[in-house]
């Protein structure tokens, strides 16, 4: 069952962490975050990181810990939300932030993985995000050119992985994970469940193993809920 499976997060990240590197980290809000690998990167202490991720965790959780550790020099994100430390570091000038529209961020990553160096989009035309970028009129509409994003390392959270690196994600924990898995030189996955070859239906695989280099079992699965919203059960008549 060995294949791409590693025993520990340290083994999965061995030789990969270098100061000044660029890391893509999957997740949307607190859902689908590679919590085990982020923890290993926090313990390693590697610094001057550029992190590409939609958000930057939340107090005490996920990428927030790398921020609190002063390991991050630059963020490429779409949303800050209620992450007070993130907002403060940006306002203080201690953290460089490149803010992207979320769809542009996702497509830049997809393009990076697909070998497409740039693409045109209407998103952001006439706003600050398009300033200084080339524009082109195509079929009578003005578009802005956006460049691809690639990284040295992608850290990914999956639900299930087999030794080949085939991945299945769960519900909205999929989000940026499959896109990021394609766009880095090395992709390291943590999965809640490691399964033997043949256990995944080939028709139901979300990320084919070619995009995955190393896999480790996710041992930190806090899966914190950011905004617990429920409805009352209807009274039984």
């Amino acid at each position: 069952m060995k294949g791409k499976f590693c025993e520990t997060p340290e083994e999965a990240l061995d030789g990969l962490l270098v100061p000044g590197m660029t890391i893509m980290s999957g997740g949307f809000g607190l859902v689908g975050n590679p919590e085990t690998l982020i923890d290993a990167i926090a313990r390693d202490g590697v610094s001057r990181l550029t992190i590409i991720s939609n958000n930057c965790g939340a107090t005490g959780f996920g990428l927030w810990r790398l921020l609190a550790n002063s390991q991050i020099e630059r963020m490429i994100s779409s949303y800050i939300g209620d992450n007070a430390l993130f907002e403060q570091r940006v306002l203080d000038g201690a953290l460089a932030l490149e803010l992207n529209p979320q769809g542009t961020l996702a497509e830049r990553i997809r393009a990076g993985g697909a070998g497409i160096p740039a693409f045109y989009t209407r998103t952001g035309v006439g706003t600050v995000v398009a300033e200084g970028k080339p524009h082109e009129e195509i079929d009578g509409v003005t578009y802005v050119r956006e460049r691809w994003l690639r990284a040295d390392l992608a850290i990914i959270k999956a639900c299930r992985a087999d030794p080949e690196g085939n991945l299945v994600f769960r519900k909205t924990a999929r989000n940026f994970n499959p896109d990021m898995a394609t766009a880095a030189r090395i992709t390291v996955v943590e999965a809640e469940e490691l399964v033997p070859a043949g256990a995944l239906d080939p028709d139901h695989i979300h990320t084919p193993g070619i995009f995955v280099d190393r896999i480790v079992k996710a041992t930190i699965n806090e899966r914190r809920v950011e905004n617990r919203t429920t409805r009352a059960r209807e009274a039984v008549a």
């Binding site: 779409s78 949303y79 939300g81 209620d82 979320q102 998103t123």
Partner: peptide, 13 residues
Amino acid sequence: MKGIGGAMDLVSG
């Protein structure tokens, strides 16, 4: 500054 999120993509697409 909460960020842009999906708003720019939504209004233009």
